[in-house]
Nucleic acid binder design. Sequence first.
DNA 1: TTGTATGCGTTATCAT
DNA 2: ATGATAACGCATACAA
Lengths: 329, 329
Amino acid sequence: MVTITDIAEALGITPSTVSRALAGSPRVKEDTRVAVLRKAEEMGYQRNIMAANLRKRRSDIVGIVVPRIHRQFFANVISGAESILNEAGYNVMICQTMEKLDVEIKVLRTLRNHQVAGVLLSHAIEARDSKHLAALGNIPLVQYDRVFFDYPGAKVVGANCEGAFKATKHLIESGYRKIGTIAGFMTSQAYVERLAGYRLAIESAGIPFNPDIVYENAIVRETGREAALKALEAGCDALYCCGDFCALGAVEALQEKGVRIPEDFGIVGTANEFFTSLMTPALTSLGQNPYEMGREAARAFLEGRTDTTVIPMELQIRSSSIRNTICQK
Amino acid sequence: MVTITDIAEALGITPSTVSRALAGSPRVKEDTRVAVLRKAEEMGYQRNIMAANLRKRRSDIVGIVVPRIHRQFFANVISGAESILNEAGYNVMICQTMEKLDVEIKVLRTLRNHQVAGVLLSHAIEARDSKHLAALGNIPLVQYDRVFFDYPGAKVVGANCEGAFKATKHLIESGYRKIGTIAGFMTSQAYVERLAGYRLAIESAGIPFNPDIVYENAIVRETGREAALKALEAGCDALYCCGDFCALGAVEALQEKGVRIPEDFGIVGTANEFFTSLMTPALTSLGQNPYEMGREAARAFLEGRTDTTVIPMELQIRSSSIRNTICQK
DNA sequence: TTGTATGCGTTATCAT
DNA sequence: ATGATAACGCATACAA
């Protein structure tokens, strides 16, 4: 393992100068700079990142915390963030919380112990408040997607309210009459806002908001099934779903009951996961631009922002929400 | 930031003893051990991993290199590996190569510079040989899924030959006659073996192997489409596909041509991605047990193995390869 | 522009 | 069982 001292000796100068030359400091003569660079190359020098980090009391790693890596949404956020961070010379450490609070706490402690340069976080469903985030100390934190607004610092969120409004309005315009919603967990602001957007669309259309057809705490396939069956019993003919997995469950449960989609019942999901386009019928879904969200979160960290950035959401209209012409009349 | 020196001073002992106590060394009296532990807890001590790693000349991080995080297969490998490594006190650094050789080289250099404890790698498609792996120096390497057999060290692979054999045999038993294969890249041993398994099944059934209906270099959706159209023209009535994405492309291209699946044409994919169960018809796929593969790769690292572990593959039979009774006659 | 001196926090070797 | 001391490789404040 060749060190800056080795290079210094080979060149008859001191490690300090080598260090400066390697760091591109202006306080070093051009000649010696090129000499150092060439020698370093020649000797196969590789900077010891540990030593540098210890000295600087900060690592070159940025932690990215996601609930689950399996979701296309988060995989895309990661890729987006990585694209920006790598360019800026940072490396990325990806951590999954599996939606569990205790894992999230453990993960944050690990990142803190590693003295990472920053953390991009979308909290676990189980995390009901922001208390545990303080464990990061003064490490810059950017919250994305699922954020706690009461915690200071940069945030990058989707236009949840606006998006859910568009999605619900689309269902209304498709001719559905009694539109319920699978609403997720009210402990998370993102879901609260989606519900608000849903409500706004409903009321804007002159329909009274009916809390009986708001199905909270559902987000996965199985709970989506249960919610859909309740909605059917309550006389609904459409559902705006806060996620694609619960929407999938809803579609399956309804189809098993002989309900035709979209003729009898309209469904819209959220996230625009890859599988939605392969379902029968293909699922209309509210896309969240995760790649762009990841890039924005990374930029927010790099620029030391403390404000909130909103990423637009786009409704990808497919078959599950379009009544055929006969029904539309 | 509280250090072992702080704890030592508070207790009137030396940093050495504190270090030993914290490390659980047997060379320290029980009383002082508990005293140190309690004091550390009380003062909110967090070990500085940088310093420890610098001193030990080795980090507590294991690098996991994947071509793309988006694939369910790799997401599951990661989760499996993580489950074992976290338990053993390691942290994980996930790196995507995007299937590019230059990115893979860069990533390996980064991991080396970080002096990671080990690397689990599935190489990029673009990597045609193992030359660049030497850049890791003496960092333990475990190759998984896509491996170079000419490079020494531990390997964890799927039972590709056996799996492809089962998949192809299944198509034969379903009554298909002219079975081609979308075969992937012959630069990768995994695909070579799948092709071998396919051939073995074909020949075991007394059918002569026909290289004209082997479609190489296809692996993504679009190339799968192209291969399927060629297969159709060549008179095939079934395809064993080395991946699920090329199988998806094949299904789509055939359906657009009015070919009915499975009645007219049988398809089997590989990897058992989530979306395969949602397609119409649902895609039969050869599952690779990625979670288990990740766990085995992690164990291979922990135990310092240098052999090859084979993970069985399981055929998940769905609609795309089962002819209805009328056709079967 | 370069050199000198020091310390980042830990672990390991040696001595006691 | 504990202490003293050095070293891991680098970066910076200060001196020249």
